[in-house]
Design a binder for these strands. Structure first.
Lengths: 336, 336
DNA sequence: CTGTTAGCGCGTTCAA
DNA sequence: TTGAACGCGCTAACAG
């Protein structure tokens, strides 16, 4: 079994447990010879210190948690990639939790993480989360945590996000320059700060062109069929839009599905642009113009920031709110 | 801080620590009145037992690990989804580790997991893994673990996989029926059992049509540019294939990229089918025919099986090797 | 340089 | 029905 522990090593070597412990941790107060003997045996028996014992002793778990709405979305997958890279390099372990956009689940998960299981956590909140009480507790207790992408703007915790308003403004501007007169914005329902910022960018661009009265916002959600229904109604109305800006990838896919079904030509009849991190959008019919978020980079930054807090390094004001720009990738779906 | 522990509760209530402990675990030897008092205070103070202490005490971590090659692949994302659902329901935590198809990394991760950090683990091995010594150790130690998809066929551990040979045979057959005479198979390099089984299905179908001498196997890897290079050479050779069967999604994407660049018409000049779990392939130009693996189901099954072992339930022989069928989704890329 | 001792917080004896 | 005491495996303070 796995009962190869310090006690066993100590007995085998006729040393005290603490000596073995120190030898393995390269303490300067142990002779080289002893170190060598200890390490040789540890290697031979494949010794691995029991993590729970050392966590208990040091109040340090060498583990962080990542709480995200879903994983079947390239954006969050890339985030995980970035986080895992940093964590693996730091010798940390990563717990993953999915909220499925459900506030209750999110709260339940956070409750479980309040007693030392992890040294810190990063979260992108669910779209049904409309209060932050479950997170306030962490703030007060001084437990390290950071927000990324879907942040709690009014909270003290560090936030890693993208320039949603600016990018959305540019995307809308791009549609307008491509000739659109009536642009619909497919928004993620709920009161997430990113939704609000993306909407505001959209509105700002319209206003700039004097089209403020043509705002057309459709709230979509996690269910494909319901989204398609809404989009179909929109496109079959007597004043259909000639451009669609989808706040998340899923809604662009739903739009394409409806257009294919209704034989609506993109970009001739309808131009489409969307937030998305999927590389394969370049192979869509037609290739989809996208706003690409630097997801991997965000994951890394979020992890780096979290580790800085964990290691009690003080954060500069500029490090408490990191905004990384997204970039627009123009493709055929918005060709003028 | 988080020092709300048994001791604190006990002091506050004028009870012994052990009494509080038992009350919270609903021991039958505690009076209802005491239980109520204890639970009320625990609730009020938001008590959460220290997980490291109980793990240490009970040699049970309530945590499992999932080791996968990458997360930025819909198949593995769906696997995670299935696993996480089961785990969350069972009150377990999920650690995620990415090997990036690197044997060394895989071995390093497994070494870290050998001493009680997790109660069990599931793994889909990297394609550079050609020996299973790092896993044999688990077998011998009797630590619960299961393989899924990329399994170690010769090992004792339970395996959850799909009918690779049959599905690949059917996919090749489908290409042949669509009129292909010369089909190339884009194989994942390395000696994974899934690669071998997928190849064998491909070969079997060719043999059935008396085309055994036309086998055309191209080994691809994780690097896009190198894959595109190989595919370009293949398609520009003097005897180019009229059908391509991609063993993994990535290679189909690479094929499409090359075809778009070379203006090779799919399906007129070249028919393409691929393993893939991406829903958006239906929006490709042209829509891509795919072999879809029941990834979410596999993740659930793998987790279920793992928990059965963890809970010391004996496994029926039929549960030690679970094969779930994939299904073929025909789309325009293979139209005859 | 090495050994002895004392907890970390919990669950589980054994006693009362 | 409750309490006192022990130990899971490890690290750190204190001796020598």
């Amino acid at each position: 079994m796995d009962n190869v522990n310090l006690k066993k090593l100590a007995k085998e070597l006729n040393l005290a447990i603490s000596t073995v412990s120190r030898a393995l941790r390269d303490s300067h107060e142990i002779s080289q010879e002893t170190k060598d003997r200890v390490k040789a045996l540890a290697e031979k028996l494949g010794f691995q210190p029991n993590p729970h014992a050392s966590s208990l002793r040091q109040s340090k778990s060498k583990t962080i948690a990542v709480v995200i709405p879903e994983i079947q979305n390239n954006f969050f997958a890339q985030i995980m990639n970035g986080v895992e890279d940093v964590a693996q390099q730091k010798g940390y372990h990563v717990l993953i939790y999915l909220t499925h956009e459900d506030y209750k689940r999110e709260k339940g998960i956070l409750d479980l993480l309040r007693n030392g299981r992890v040294d810190g956590l990063m979260i992108s909140v669910s779209n049904t989360t409309d209060n932050f009480e479950h997170l306030q507790a962490y703030c007060k207790a001084g437990i390290p945590f950071v927000f990324f992408d879907r942040v709690g703007e009014l909270m003290e915790a560090p936030q890693i996000m993208t320039d949603d308003a600016e990018a959305s403004c540019k995307a809308t501007d791009h549609l307008l320059k491509a000739g659109c007169k009536r642009i619909a914005f497919l928004s993620l329902s709920g009161n997430l700060s990113i939704s609000i910022r993306r909407q505001s960018g959209y509105k700002k661009a319209l206003a700039k062109y004097g089209l403020g009265q043509h705002e057309l916002i459709v709230e979509c959600g996690p269910e494909d069929e319901s989204n398609r229904q809404k989009i179909r109604e929109l496109l079959e109305s007597n004043k259909p839009p000639d451009g669609i800006f989808a706040a998340i990838e899923k809604f662009a896919v739903n739009t394409y599905e409806v257009c294919h079904a209704l034989k609506i030509k993109i970009p001739e009849k309808l131009k489409v642009i969307s937030y998305s991190n999927m590389a394969a959008v370049a192979l869509f019919d037609p290739p989809l113009s996208t706003i690409v978020q630097p997801a991997y980079e965000m994951g890394k930054q979020a992890a780096d920031t979290l580790f800085k807090i964990i290691e009690k390094k003080s954060l500069l004001p500029a490090e408490k709110k990191i905004v990384i720009p997204s970039c627009i990738k123009e493709r055929r779906s918005t060709r003028g």
